[in-house]
């Protein structure tokens, strides 16, 4: 990250000759079609009238009945709400913890700082499967032990958070806590933001310190405002991965009303095995928010991949 990408040296290519341009466009169009056609077929299948063969690419007169069906047959709207809660809280939480730790590793001094940093990011290579069994065990048993210890049954009985919609146990399997808490910290996020903070000129925070700012004020008033692109990038990637997270909720969640979208949707396969329009309607509903986010935030994707991977 010590140097910015060399924008100036992007070669000014010679004019592409028309014949060659045509060939390139043709190749691009074919490849783009093979990317987009399956997705279009998904949408088309989801709006087909009963009786129109699945094999037809075009749906004929479109119908939204399968969407209505998906929402009626399953607590699909609840899956949606769960996914949104998880993705939003995880994103905000991970951003805060990563920014704070990244700042400490980039700017503050304490003994063993760099060693600790490298040890911390080295844990990125530990497969999640290694910690999953104990995490599952700890999180499912914690409420039982806490109940025994405190002599209550609070931790295993259903509570109403913000009314009926968010009813659930406070801890353990089938709780928001289990779905969210393990994702609130991230070596990768810390790494990404630390690398970005290091590239901010030190003279800026020295000036702030001279003006009497303490570490916290420097962090919130100098470093964070200058890091909006990096923060936005991390936010998008965190949001996306929390939205798509599958294995962990699959293990932790049994209760229908606590399932996030991917787990709820996967349940369609067993329930409605051959009802393809219904399944495709569910799949389309899951993808729409992601595609909208993508079209609004495209530039951050490119930035983020370069920051995280190439420029690392």
């Amino acid at each position: 990250m010590s140097e910015q990408p060399r924008r100036a040296s992007v070669p000014k290519r010679e004019q592409v000759r028309p014949i060659r341009a045509l060939v390139i466009y043709l190749a691009l169009s074919l490849l783009a079609a093979s990317t987009v056609v399956p997705l279009l077929w998904m949408v088309s299948t989801s709006v087909k009238q009963p009786g129109v063969p699945y094999t037809d690419f075009l749906p004929g007169v479109p119908t939204l009945r399968h969407y209505a069906e998906a929402l009626q047959l399953t607590p699909f709207s609840r899956y949606y709400v769960n996914s949104i809660i998880i993705a939003v809280v995880v994103t905000l939480g991970q951003l805060s913890t990563s920014a704070m730790a990244g700042y400490a590793f980039a700017r503050l001094r304490f003994p063993g700082r760099d060693k600790l940093f490298f040890a911390y990011i080295a844990t990125m290579m530990i497969p999640s499967a290694v910690t999953m069994v104990p995490l599952f065990m700890i999180l499912t048993r914690a409420p039982i032990y806490l109940n025994d210890w405190l002599g209550t049954d609070y931790f295993t009985s259903e509570q109403f958070f913000l009314g009926r919609w968010f009813a659930g146990v406070p801890l353990g399997a089938d709780s928001y806590f289990a779905l969210i808490a393990p994702l609130l910290f991230s070596p990768f996020g810390t790494f990404l933001l630390r690398q970005f903070f290091i590239a901010i000129p030190r003279s800026l925070d020295e000036a702030a310190m001279l003006d009497g700012c303490n570490a916290f004020q420097t962090f919130t008033q100098v470093i964070l405002p200058l890091s909006k692109p990096a923060l936005a990038t991390l936010a998008i990637f965190t949001f996306m991965s929390a939205w798509g997270n599958f294995l962990w909720p699959l293990i932790m969640i049994n209760a229908e009303q606590m399932k996030p979208l991917p787990v709820g949707l996967a349940g369609f396969i067993g329930e409605y095995a051959t009802n393809w329009p219904l399944m495709m309607a569910g799949a389309t509903m899951m993808l729409v928010p992601m595609i909208i986010v993508f079209f609004f935030c495209q530039r951050f994707f490119v930035k983020g991949i370069q920051l995280g991977a190439v420029k690392g």
Partner: peptide, 10 residues
């Protein structure tokens, strides 16, 4: 962007 359970079902 679409990677995940939905695309795998597709």
């Amino acid at each position: 962007i679409c990677n995940g359970i939905a695309v795998l079902m597709l």
